[in-house]
């Protein structure tokens, strides 16, 4: 075989051409196969189920890290909808949520309709935790609320229930069939996790509107989009088929993974 003799210039030219070629092939070549519902996309999404099972196995019922007062160095950064423009919400807010109720429905023995006072009279949990947004940022804050498990116990969950769906008051999107209000869901393991609370307090004060007043959920072992704000109703279901686009949440219907522990 002939020995490769290659000049430095020739070599640098071909090397840079090679690298450029590889980079250019990346851009939009895969776009068409990655839309929600496409075969390749659905195949890749299978990894989320694997992650869900693996993390359930590894994390068990362990608690998310909690921090100290000294770690609270700034107000909780709000994200997503920060001032709902919905008439229903605005009238509830005008009345300081006196007419607001949290309904618990679906696969439960005793449907509930709880006032804010009733929730606040239940045993509460306060925790200083780190909020991790799907975008990549984190923010530490102190949350106070009613453990979701207490509410579920009061409603008595039927054995066939598998998920807790949160229905919210804020319009996140508009479609031809009307306004889409935020919705999301978690499994019963996270719903019954001791740190999963229906929060009405933030950093020692009532929960502000931008952070989800009157009530938002905290799911400390998942990413921020799994913790809906402006809660209106909790529904116990055995499948997502009748919820929005059928993938378990607003962001999920827009291509985000349902399990947000990563």
């Amino acid at each position: 075989m002939a020995k490769f003799v290659i000049s430095r210039r020739k070599f640098l030219t071909s090397a840079s051409l090679g690298v450029t070629g590889i980079m250019l092939s990346g851009c939009d070549a895969f776009d068409s196969q990655l839309r929600v519902g496409d075969g390749l996309r659905s195949f890749l999404e299978g990894a989320n189920g694997l992650t869900w099972r693996a993390q359930r196995l590894l994390a068990g019922d362990s608690l998310a890290p909690e921090f100290t007062e000294a770690d609270i160095r700034q107000p909780q950064r709000p994200n997503g909808v920060t001032a709902p423009d919905d008439d229903v919400y605005k009238s509830l807010l005008a009345n300081n949520f006196a007419d607001w109720r949290l309904d618990v429905s679906g696969l439960v023995e005793k449907p509930l309709s709880l006032t804010r006072e009733q929730l606040m009279n239940m045993p509460s949990r306060t925790q200083i935790t780190r909020h991790d947004c799907v975008e990549g940022w984190s923010c530490i804050a102190k949350w106070t609320g009613t453990p979701l498990s207490l509410v579920l116990d009061q409603a008595v969950v039927k054995p066939q229930a598998r998920y807790v769906v949160f229905h919210c008051l804020d319009t996140i999107d508009r479609s031809l069939s009307g306004d889409i209000k935020y919705y999301g869901s978690i499994d019963l393991i996270d719903a019954r996790h001791p740190q999963t609370i229906l929060a009405y307090g933030l950093n020692g004060k009532p929960l502000p509107v931008e952070n989800g007043a009157p009530l938002r959920v905290r799911v400390e072992r998942q990413i921020g989009y799994k913790m809906p704000k402006y809660l209106r109703r909790i529904e116990l279901v055995d499948s997502f088929a009748a919820i929005g686009g059928g993938r378990g949440g607003y962001w999920e219907d827009n291509g985000y993974d349902w399990y947000g522990g990563i």
């Binding site: 980079m23 250019l24 990346g26 851009c27 939009d28 895969f30 776009d31 990655l34 996309r41 890749l44 999404e45 299978g46 990894a47 989320n48 694997l50 992650t51 799907v134 975008e135 962001w251 827009n254 291509g255 985000y256 993974d257 990563i262």
Partner: peptide
């Protein structure tokens, strides 16, 4: 720039799906 990302347009949800699949 869009030539350096998958998908080429802004789509965080899809990028996470791709990223975590190949992480496995």
């Amino acid at each position: 720039p869009s030539w350096a990302t998958i998908p080429s347009y802004y789509d965080l949800g899809t990028a996470r799906v791709v990223h975590f699949f190949f992480a496995w």
